[in-house]
């Protein structure tokens, strides 16, 4: 399943780091964090999608505590 989320990330370098971190999560097929459009596109396993999103948020918080992913 592929889904798009709005994000709030302040620095381009952080966005790149988040992308790398999320890509390493298990169950994530494809991820792209677009700093310019402030959009996160995740393609991940259907059954575990919510769980994966939680880990993805944790990844982003770890890179930059001020970042936000808007789940809705």
């Amino acid at each position: 399943m592929k889904k798009k989320f709005k994000v709030d990330v302040d620095c381009a370098n952080c966005a790149a780091k988040m992308e790398t971190a999320i890509a390493k999560l298990e169950g994530v097929n494809e991820v792209s964090m677009n700093f310019m459009t402030q959009k996160l596109t995740i393609d991940a396993d259907d059954e575990r999608f919510d769980e994966i999103m939680q880990s993805a948020i944790a990844c982003c918080k770890k890179v930059d505590a001020d970042s936000t992913i808007y789940l809705s």
Partner: peptide
């Protein structure tokens, strides 16, 4: 800090 490049090139 590589910010100058990391921001300006994709921009």
């Amino acid at each position: 800090c590589p910010c100058a490049l990391v921001i300006s090139v994709p921009l």
